[in-house]
Design a protein around this nucleic acid. Structure first.
Length: 446
RNA sequence: GCCCCCAUCGUCCAGCGGCCUAGGACGCCUGCCUUUCACGCAGGUAACACGGGUUCGAAUCCCGUUGGGGGUGCCA
């Protein structure tokens, strides 16, 4: 039998990294087993029933490449069906009306202003086999009668969730562990309406450095923010797959298509996983480096366009693409690009105090180096090897190796100690006059 | 409080009773390469929470302790 899974987010206006991981695992499970992946928006709460809140959610899922087969279905549009189930439960005495003080009110039909609670059976053990956790069981005695229908005439999450899973023929419910303790209630509900129970798989939570569930207040949880900072969707999805799961061959950085081949929902871990930005950066940098030149240029384009820290009109795409090849392997995110090339498009290089301190103040013989370089570079051929030779000569006369001599020149020309290969950048993308002007400018500031 | 879940290097993942003197990755440190940074290469650092069992044999199974987390709404 082929499976049917669903990703059922509540619209919050953005896609949470934890939700993205859940969506990914559902997608992987469906795609690797030939199943069907359903998208359902759980917006039973009126507050969340606003289209702009779901638009970004869908856009981010698409960005990640997690396409769905059916939906999106909106829970808010299924209210009549939910009402029908609640009324049936009421008639059968499995649920009862209750007022704001939680007092039972007699009656077997819905009444405006009254909520409905599911009647918890006594002394019943509710057990199920979780695909990642094994057997989990609860006693109904520890559970309260819970609200399934609000006094304002809308269904509660647990009811809508159970009914929709049943109606949509969901066979595998894959979701976060924070929903684990709600399972017995859903199971009882499912039993009450005579629907088969789906198989559950509760994924370990994603936590922060303090081992707490990722929260939007303290942590960077929005997929959209990572996107804006220059993370690639393939890297994001790759890293997310590594939280709670690992490939059997230990090859961690790889395309989604390969992960799809190796993924087994039953291999997922039970323990919570720390969302490690350092590792995400590593995965991203690796994917970035693997991009072909043309592809890379297309992907960074947004970061060197209107949002870039230089006047749009001074941008030179030819210089940029020449330089891009030299810095592609140095980036961790696409967002790193501007600071590697800004010196080419700014009137004067940025003034990075730390770099200045390091190369001009603490560095040895900055003045002599700049003077010597200005002289040597004034008439040598304008090509990398000639520049290296000229500068090396200056260095020799001062007893310094190339690595040391280039530092003040780099800071004078680019503003920073970190950047693309200096001599290539100067020879291929800058005019002699401009380079000399910047060296003189820096010399004057010493 | 009550219920549920979890527990291998700082972090993520491997290990599913003997192949473990516990493996890989990120991070960190050292060296090499070197026009900075990065990449690459060669090394290094570092873990089975604790206590009882079961077994010829336990990181692997069971129980307890401790620690951590989640849930406990007319939110989802």
């Amino acid at each position: 039998m082929t499976c049917r899974v669903r990703f059922a987010p509540s619209p919050t206006g953005y896609l949470h990294v934890g939700s993205a991981r859940t969506a990914l695992f559902n997608w992987l499970h469906a795609r690797s087993t030939g199943g069907t992946y359903v998208l359902r928006i759980e917006d039973t709460d009126a507050e969340r029933n606003r289209s702009e809140l779901t638009d970004s959610l869908l856009a981010e899922l698409e960005w990640l490449g997690l396409d769905w087969d059916e939906g999106p279905f909106y829970q808010s549009e299924r209210r009549d069906r939910h009402r029908e189930v609640v009324e049936d439960l009421l008639v059968r005495g499995l649920a009862y009306l209750c007022d704001a003080d939680n007092h039972e009110v007699a009656g077997s039909t819905l009444v405006d202003g009254l909520a409905v609670r599911f009647r918890m059976p006594a002394a019943e053990t509710v057990a199920f086999e979780d695909v990642v956790r094994g057997e989990v069981s609860f006693s109904s005695d520890d559970l309260e009668d819970f609200v399934i229908w609000r006094s304002n005439g809308s269904p509660m999450f647990l009811l809508a969730n159970a009914v929709d899973d049943a109606d949509m023929g969901i066979t595998d419910a894959i979701r976060g562990e924070d929903l684990l303790s709600g399972v017995p209630k859903v199971l009882l509900l499912l039993d009450a309406i005579g629907s088969p129970r789906p198989t559950y798989a509760h994924l370990p939570l994603l936590v922060n450095e303090r081992r707490k569930k990722l929260s939007k207040r303290r942590d960077d949880v929005s997929i959209g923010d990572y996107r804006a900072r220059g993370y690639l969707p393939e890297a994001m999805v790759n890293y997310l797959a590594l939280l709670g799961w690992g490939p059997p061959d230990d090859v961690e950085v790889r395309p989604l298509a390969e992960i799809l081949e190796l993924f087994r929902i039953g291999d997922v871990n039970k323990a919570a996983a720390f969302f490690d930005l350092k590792k995400l950066e590593h995965v991203n940098a690796t994917h970035l480096r693997a991009l072909e030149r043309g592809e890379f240029l297309e992907r960074v384009a947004p970061w060197v366009g209107d949002a870039a820290p230089w006047p749009t009109e001074s941008f030179d795409p030819v210089k940029f693409s020449t330089m891009a090849g030299l810095v592609q392997e140095k980036l961790r995110t696409l967002g790193d690009m501007p600071r590697f090339v800004d010196f080419l498009f700014l009137e004067d290089p940025v003034d990075d105090p730390e770099s200045w301190e390091k190369a001009m103040v603490k560095g040895v013989s900055a003045a002599e180096i700049l003077d010597g370089a200005a002289l040597a570079m004034a008439d040598c051929p304008w090509e990398p090897q000639a520049l290296i030779a000229a500068v090396s000569e200056v260095g020799e006369s001062l007893g310094l190796k190339l690595g040391k001599v280039q530092a003040p020149i780099r800071v004078a020309v680019t503003g920073r100690t970190v950047g693309p290969p200096l001599f290539e950048a100067m020879a291929e993308c800058m005019e002699r006059g401009e380079v000399l002007r910047r060296i003189a400018r820096a010399r004057a500031r010493l």
